[in-house]
């Protein structure tokens, strides 16, 4: 009976998130426009400036657009994760987060279900982006599109867990602009999403080290290798470890006796 309850609750939370996503078409469009602008404008302009040498998983010279595609998938997951955490802060301010927290299921389970729901939306966005990229002639081997599914799920869960952790710290919606400057931009630009590690190393070994240990880089590399039917073990271990760390801290953050909620204070 309990397992049925858990299953129904997860299905309910994921279903609600997908329904909300379908009803907010502008959210879907804007989630796609961002990476597409990077692909069509930034990558096209950058193509001449940046030569990509042959490095795994690529077996031949590739266009910059091809290189940047897994990075943009990571970008979709990153923004989606942050958007989910933004909506959690919003939900908390509006009270619907309390509605979720008051239902008779363990809090860690509710947070994980919320994470699964957010990731499902992110993965859908990724496939829509890949569909458009395909039409733009950025085509990976067909099985690669299946291979990346677990990579997208793990990457999405890791970045979503980071968002969840941040949402337990952020008291008000207004503070969210800080997340853009201090989390999203450093994570994205200090990574292998836009340029390969060896290229970063040429200009700054320190930056290359930071990029290498950036969990976002590892998620992107996991996706990059998977898209070409290859398995990057180090990226998998690193991404999974980061996920466990973030989700553990987020669960602690939402703990009613230890978490940040107590320190933040209530209404009156």
């Amino acid at each position: 009976m309990r397992i049925v309850h858990y299953w129904r609750a997860t299905a309910g939370i994921v279903g609600r998130e997908l329904l909300r996503f379908l009803h907010q078409r502008e959210r879907f469009v804007s989630a796609l426009v961002r990476p597409l602008v990077w692909l069509f404008v930034f990558a096209a302009g950058f193509r001449a400036a940046l030569g990509i040498a042959i490095s795994p998983p690529y077996e031949t010279y590739i266009l910059y657009e091809v290189y940047i595609t897994p990075g943009l998938l990571g970008m979709i997951l990153l923004f989606n994760g942050m958007q989910s955490s933004l909506s959690m802060v919003y939900d908390r301010e509006m009270g619907s987060m309390r509605m979720l927290m008051v239902c008779p299921l363990p809090r860690w389970f509710l947070l994980c279900s919320k994470l699964i729901a957010g990731t499902a939306v992110g993965v859908l966005q990724c496939y829509a982006f890949l569909g458009i990229a395909w039409l733009y002639d950025i085509q990976a081997p067909l099985p690669g599109y299946l291979w990346i599914l677990p990579a997208l799920v793990l990457g999405g869960m890791m970045l979503g867990a980071l968002g969840l952790l941040l949402s337990s710290f952020i008291k008000q919606l207004e503070n969210f602009a800080g997340v853009m400057n201090f989390v999203i931009f450093p994570l994205f630009f200090m990574s292998t999403a836009l340029y390969p590690l060896w290229k970063i190393k040429e200009s700054s070994p320190l930056l290359a080290t930071l990029a290498e240990y950036n969990p976002f880089s590892q998620a992107v590399e996991l996706i990059r290798f998977a898209l070409y039917e290859q398995f990057n073990q180090w990226a998998l271990v690193f991404t999974a470890a980061a996920f466990l760390l973030f989700i553990g801290a987020a669960i602690l953050g939402y703990n009613p006796s230890k978490g940040m909620m107590v320190r933040k204070g209530g209404g009156d």
Partner: peptide, 9 residues
Amino acid sequence: YHAALHGIG
């Protein structure tokens, strides 16, 4: 949604 959270079919 609320019913699902409470495990009601």
